[in-house]
Amino acid sequence: MRIALFITCVNDTLFPDTGRAVVELLERLGHEVVFPQGQTCCGQMHYNTGYRRPATKLAVRFVQTFDGADAVVVPSASCAAMIREHYPRLGRSGSRLSRKVAALAPRVYDLTELLVDVLGVTDVDAYYPHRVAYHPTCHGLRMLGLGDRPYRLLRAVRGLDLVEVGRPEECCGFGGTFALKNSDVSTAMGADKARQAVDTGAEVLCMVDNSCLMHVGGILQRQRSGVRVAHIAEILARTETSEAAVSPTTEEADR
């Protein structure tokens, strides 16, 4: 299958390894990945902060860029949710944008949805011999309804010891600009999530969204907790060969 990758601005700029992992994984499964060059950002930050006009412009760019794609994969549940759940609210009814959104949005998938629902695979032939704590992020849980898809994918990974973070339905406190505007509450929430992750005894905290991971991971790193974070794509892409090539560092330099 020919799959268009919407990398998201956060992954593109700060977490390119996640994008590379998506490409590696999908190609390993025998699919073709394309990267439409016109893409930038889904507009979630502007939309959620109240800046509807720039968000709408970014939505227009998105539908133009991905027009006609058979399937769009998004390695971020909240960006996928922005496109599927909020884009329909941006265009006026009957407008060109709303027609394009209606046609495209159903073919936009979070990575775990693409794998399980579209490609029909749960065992992606990955190897990751680590204890991994999984936390379902809010937009994946409540807006996309990812359900057990991430768990099924992770359980099929050879060597992986899967544990769940306590109170999985509770928000980690990232919330986009909430993390800055209400940093005290955001940190209080993140500290609880970090503690729940540490309590699992896992080496790795895994989620389907790098923005939430950046927040909880940033706290875990400040605390020198010894728990590192990984996007689910990076775990699913790992094989015996690539695992041997990487020596995991639990503590990167705290910048």
Partner: peptide, 30 residues
Amino acid sequence: VPRHLPGAASAWTDTRSVPEIPEESFRRWW
């Protein structure tokens, strides 16, 4: 990038470390 950023960004770095900026973006790698 300093460990503690000034101004509005301090709302992040007071309690959280900043992720390391990669050598190249995804689109450049691609």
